[in-house]
């Protein structure tokens, strides 16, 4: 059971990438969409790196590309960029609060979505709207604190379980 709880973030990342569950709510509010995968990757790489390996992040990205119809490797690069920033922040800081995490997460998704947009618009025939990416980035940032509290709570369960 403890092993399953430890694998929770990884299972969630894979499940969100492969299942039909989406975070685009155009029926309720046309511009509302956010990327939960980026939040999961940032949080768990910076708080508990052993929960999500780089290889798993890479494969989750490949799966996401197949499901979404993007060129293979694009989401992987985007996810690995977030992972890189999270890793860097983890190496540079000792104690973090939600405000610092929120700010550094903004930097991470900015670079991640920038790479995503540059690669897609310059090397692929797929046309995407910069405004849509901006809305997605904005709402992902807005929803970050909610998931931060949720994952912090989950992280405390793992930690308590480990010490028990």
């Amino acid at each position: 059971m403890r092993k399953l709880i430890n694998l929770g973030p990884l299972i969630l990342l894979y499940y969100l990438s492969i299942s039909e569950i989406d975070s685009h709510f155009e029926n309720y509010f046309e511009i509302l969409s956010f990327n939960i995968q980026l939040i999961i990757i940032y949080f768990w790489v910076s708080k508990r790196p052993e929960a999500l390996g780089g290889g798993h992040i890479f494969f989750a990205g490949l799966i996401n590309d197949v499901i979404m119809g993007f060129p293979l490797g694009l989401s992987s690069l985007s996810y690995l960029t977030v992972s890189l920033v999270a890793n860097y922040v983890k190496n540079m800081t000792v104690n973090t609060r939600i405000t610092t995490d929120w700010f550094t997460f903004f930097i991470a998704i900015f670079f991640s979505n920038l790479i995503f947009f540059i690669l897609l618009s310059n090397f692929s025939e797929i046309e995407i709207n910069l405004t849509e990416i901006s809305y997605n980035t904005f709402f992902t940032l807005i929803f970050f604190p909610f998931f931060w509290f949720l994952f912090t709570f989950y992280n405390s369960i793992i930690t308590t379980d480990k010490h028990a």
Partner: peptide, 21 residues
């Protein structure tokens, strides 16, 4: 728990991307 470094995975992802594109 990690078998690959990020730079290696970014390199592999870039190769796959350009091969596919």
């Amino acid at each position: 728990a990690q078998k690959f470094s990020l730079v290696f995975l970014i390199f592999i992802a870039s190769i796959i991307f350009f091969l596919d594109v």
